[in-house]
Design a protein around this nucleic acid. Structure first.
Length: 684
DNA sequence: GCGGAGTTCTTTTTT
DNA sequence: AGAACTCCGC
């Protein structure tokens, strides 16, 4: 199998795939077979006898990891290879590492990973003045550049930065106290441990003799430093990247890492992959035109290897409903002509744009899957359940306990929680133990008689549930519902139906997990899902919708990109970087294999109001807006629309029936009624 | 001290 | 539009 894979590579790809020792930089343009190359390299290394468990491959997203794993495994004879090579996201690797080595920092390994939402909550509780989004990004920036709270304090010139550094310090203290770990910590703490313990660093580096990194242009400083540690005893680092596809600058990614790779690591071999095997020449041509407007780049052109292809379509619509209608019409036609829905995707810069699409797809009866957006595990009801289950496995988890102490509502409010918190701090004892150990009277002295009773009942239920769990993993979900009525608490509330559906899905997922893994317990389950963002993705016959960020590394035969309007794409203002926006445009366009349709509207409903918009500069920059391309100008008409006719002037539509591409309109021009085709009037 | 009603802010993107 | 936050009545 590997032989086939190797022989299907071109010369440069082969050179990269068969490189063994020493650092290797693969500069790979979009669609140049980058994933194929490094997965083949992975299989190649194994085929020549290198121990699979000594190879580490790191990616950025779970999706990329999954895809690579599948591809690589199909090339490896899994019957011979006993331990599969570790292939996961940076964060997952950090998590695995911390599970083993957290004690190096004097912390227990039953820490809990908090997500951005939890992080915001904590920051809000520390400070209410400064916007949390600023705090989130600033603190993240500190961590990713290895600046400690005290260093941040010293460096702070402006008052606002002193405040932020102060909050940063408190935030870190809070995490430590509750044994919490944020996403940045998953990279930062392993680095700190390796920095502190040279011996361990050497060991780890010895363990992973071959390290590969996908999407290297998106690594930040911390990730680079971590890689340095991993390669402490060798120089076997192979990275793949494309400076034109760097789209995570807002997360601290720096192109410098890829630009300076050869200086960072000795004797680097550089292989360039410039042939594009994915897209038609027309698509590549416009992608090249667009990216040429960027100054901050190494400069390269994608070289096409396929046919010329169909010209790119640009749709102009008055609003998102019309836009959706055109796209669903096209997709219906594609599917009718025998295309598979899974070869079709719609991309957008802003997740919120998916809403009108979803409506339109439901109306049109088309299957779709929305990738990204509000993630399953980020939903409040799922996080509540996870919090419940975490308490069961870890009674010291104050954070989770506080989350569910009043869910479903049992009359425990903020004041009571604050009191418990204070007591917990005073006695250096988890709230759980206070609730458990204190006599009702003692507890009443803290929170009052009524609450004391409520909390004692709550605790009794929790203890009960723990016992049930010990007895039977399968039974405990029923017991959980019987005692807490969590699902039932969403009866008769707005969107309770959806939430209950999520709850059911989650329960089903847990049950299935225990059926599949009888020897594993709840704690294993919780660990596993901590970094999982998407599951059940492979619903087959459905059109995909996702943000451009999520689309990285993917390809579709037929692609639609919507929302090409100034303000939506590119996003302009504050923290936005026009070059990065343009790279996003480049990434988006280069996802398309055969056909590409771009769409912009005159107005969009967003954040509660309708805004009029101008078409995106990217349309002209990519050479699409002037010249000989098809611009679809039909708009939809309905009764009551105001229209303008060159001769008859302004009139109001009284009747509109569809006639092919046009509409047959009955228009009232100041009292005179005329039947006119829509192509002869302009909508106002 | 808790829960419901009004008010403000948000996300651009992901682990 | 929807969540998240503030304020005031039981």
């Amino acid at each position: 199998m590997l032989e086939n894979s190797l022989s299907s590579l071109n010369e440069s790809q082969k050179e990269a795939a068969q490189h063994i020792d020493g650092s290797l930089l693969i500069l790979a343009g979009a669609g140049s077979g980058k994933t194929k190359t490094i997965t083949t390299r992975l299989a190649y290394l194994i085929s020549i006898g290198i121990d699979p468990s000594s190879i580490l491959t790191l990616t950025f997203t779970n999706k990329a990891a999954t895809e690579m794993r599948e591809r690589a495994y199909s090339m490896i004879d899994t019957t011979i290879v006993n331990t599969p090579p570790l292939l996961c996201t940076f964060h997952k690797f950090g998590l695995l590492f911390l599970k083993f080595h957290m004690s190096e920092l004097g912390r227990k390994n039953n820490f809990i990973i908090i997500d951005t939402d939890d992080k915001k909550r904590i920051l809000k509780s520390i400070d209410k003045e400064i916007t949390t989004s600023l705090l989130v990004s600033e603190i993240s920036k500190y961590k990713n550049t290895l600046i400690s709270p005290s260093e941040a304090k010293t460096a702070a010139q402006l008052k606002i930065y002193q405040q932020i550094a102060d909050i940063y310090e408190k935030y870190e203290a809070y995490l430590l106290k509750n044994n919490l770990v944020d996403f940045d910590d998953l990279l930062l703490l392993p680095y700190k441990i390796l920095e502190k313990n040279e011996e361990l660093a050497k060991q780890i580096s010895q363990k992973y003799q071959y390290v590969m990194v996908d999407e290297y242009q998106d690594t930040n400083e911390l990730q680079y430093k971590l890689l340095r540690k991993l390669c402490l005893t060798h120089n076997n680092l192979c990275v793949v990247g494309d400076d034109d596809q760097s789209i995570y600058g807002w997360r601290g990614a720096t192109i410098k890492n890829i630009l300076n790779f050869s200086e960072h690591f000795e004797n680097t071999k550089v292989v360039k992959l410039e042939n594009n095997y994915r897209s038609t020449n027309i698509i590549l041509n416009h992608a090249n035109q667009l990216i040429e407007h960027n100054r901050d780049r190494l400069g390269k052109k994608l070289i096409g290897t396929r046919k010329e292809g169909d010209s790119i379509k640009v749709y102009e619509s008055s609003d998102e409903n019309e836009e959706t209608r055109k796209i669903t019409d096209d997709i219906k036609k594609l599917i009718a002509s025998g295309e598979s829905a899974k070869d079709i995707a719609i991309l957008f810069r802003v997740n919120a744009l998916s809403r009108s699409l979803e409506e339109g797809f439901n109306k049109a009866g088309l299957n779709y899957k929305l990738i990204g957006g509000m993630k399953f595990y980020e939903r409040a009801e799922i996080k509540d359940l996870i919090a419940y289950f975490r308490i069961l496995t870890n009674t010291t988890d104050n954070f989770s306990l506080k989350r569910v102490i009043n869910k479903p509502k049992r009359g425990i409010g903020k004041t009571t929680i604050d009191k418990l918190d204070a007591k917990s701090l005073e006695l250096k004892k988890p709230i759980f133990n206070i609730l458990e150990d204190f006599e009702p009277d003692e507890l009443a002295a803290i929170v009052g008689k009524k609450n004391s009773r409520t909390l004692k009942v709550f605790m009794a239920s929790i203890m009960d549930l723990r016992d049930t769990m010990e007895e039977s993993k399968m039974k405990f979900l029923d017991t959980f519902e019987d005692t807490f009525d969590y699902r039932a608490s969403y009866d008769n509330v707005p969107d309770g139906f959806d939430r209950q559906a999520n709850i059911d899905e989650f329960y089903g997922y847990i049950r299935d997990y225990f059926i599949q893994n009888p020897h594993l317990n709840l704690e294993d389950f919780l660990n596993e899902i901590a970094l999982e963002s998407e599951q059940g993705e492979l619903t087959d016959q459905a059109v995909s919708m996702m943000s451009i960020h999520s689309s990285k590394g993917l390809e579709y035969k037929h692609l639609f990109i919507i929302g090409l309007e100034e303000g939506f794409f590119p996003i302009i203002g504050d923290g936005s970087d026009i070059e990065e926006e343009r790279r996003l445009g480049y990434v988006a366009i280069t996802r398309a294999m055969d056909t590409l349709t771009l769409s912009f509207v005159h107005s969009r409903f967003y954040k509660g109001k309708r805004t009029s918009l101008l078409k995106s500069r990217f349309l002209s920059e990519s050479g699409l807006i002037k010249g000989s391309l098809t611009i679809e100008k039909t708009s939809s008409y309905k009764k009551g629309d105001l229209v303008q006719h060159k001769i008859f002037g302004m009139g109001r539509v009284q009747k509109a029936t569809k006639a092919g591409k046009d509409y047959k309109l009955t228009i009232n021009f100041g009292g005179t009624r005329r039947d006119i085709l829509s192509s002869f009037v302009e909508k106002i």
